[in-house]
Design a protein around this nucleic acid. Structure first.
Length: 282
DNA sequence: ATTGGTTCCTGCTGGC
DNA sequence: TGCCAGCAGGAACCAA
């Protein structure tokens, strides 16, 4: 499930393969992912050079030399797989939906089993106006994200803090896994009403979010079912989860206590599983 | 306006 | 052993 760390890991892998390369051909093998692909995707990209790759929240923004930007979202199960020039080319798989070929002989395949991903093309000077990007909240790893900023954005929100953090308009890039982990590290109950996260609590939560994202990026993201690096390698942050997917186990802090028993509980909030420590999170 | 529920899609899992 | 309902989840969309 690509969240910010998985998208960032993908960005780094793609950048190494694509920066400065000419896109010789682009082949869309399906008419639509989550949304219809631009019908002229191939013709607008073919023959153009990739100037760089940025990331905004969970979106990849591939800069093209003529002032276009290719937006890519990995959705739930999207993967970008790089096949270097001169290397092996296994047969296309069932859900290889978009194929990029570079002038240097590198091939990149966008594979997305559940087809919740998206691609779009836009002018570079219109990126901020794009409907998918326009309303996004601050980048959690950016300088503009801090305790007072988060507190202000949570003001008046009666929804649980867990749900608020999944809302990309509050802060952009978190998904179910890293929200659970961040709330654990901030000692905050996922059920706590969002507007009560102010002052020191908001500061703690910001630090927890930044720390867990940094650590996950350093570990190459988390590979649960679908996620792989661009070179096919697995991320390994899933081994460092404190609570996610660990129902009825002991959390790292409770595990220090010989008398403690399973403290991690699961509940469902707005249709998604939340994992938390019933002893430490308030 | 805010918030909760539904939907898209496919593959895996658990229960019978 | 085999089948199928249920679940997983990002985010747009709809409804209250």
């Amino acid at each position: 499930m690509p969240e910010l760390p998985e998208v960032e890991t993908t960005r780094q892998g793609l950048l190494a393969a694509l920066e400065g390369q000419v896109l010789r051909s682009v082949e869309a093998r399906v008419p639509a992912l989550r949304f219809p692909l631009p019908p002229d995707l191939a013709t607008r990209l073919a023959g153009r050079k990739v100037t760089g790759i940025d990331r905004r929240a969970k979106y990849l923004l591939v800069g093209i030399e003529d002032g276009q930007v290719l937006l890519i979202h990995l959705g739930m199960s999207g993967r970008m797989r790089v096949f270097p020039a001169g290397g092996e080319r296994p047969p296309l798989e069932k859900h290889d939906h978009v194929i990029f070929q570079t002038g240097g002989g590198t091939e990149i395949r966008f594979n997305d089993t559940r087809r919740f991903g998206a691609m779009d093309l836009m002018a570079a000077d219109a990126v901020g106006d794009h409907p998918l990007l326009r309303d996004l909240g601050p980048e959690p790893l950016g300088n503009e994200f801090n305790g007072p900023v988060l507190a202000a954005r949570l003001q008046g929100k009666r929804t649980p803090i867990k749900s608020a953090l999944l809302d990309q308009k509050i802060v952009a890039g978190l998904g179910n896994i890293y929200v659970c982990e961040a709330l654990y590290h901030a000692n905050l109950s996922p059920r706590r009403s969002a507007h009560t996260v102010q002052g020191a609590r908001a500061e703690r939560l910001v630090q927890a979010i930044r720390q867990v994202l940094h650590q996950a990026i350093a570990a190459g993201g988390s590979s649960l079912r679908d996620f792989r690096h661009a070179d096919g390698e697995l991320g390994y942050f899933q081994h460092q989860f404190a609570v996610y997917g660990r129902e009825s186990e002991r959390c790292p802090r409770c595990a220090q206590d010989a008398k403690s028993t399973g403290c991690i509980r699961r509940l469902v909030q707005s249709g998604r599983s939340t994992f938390y420590c019933s002893r430490w999170q308030r």
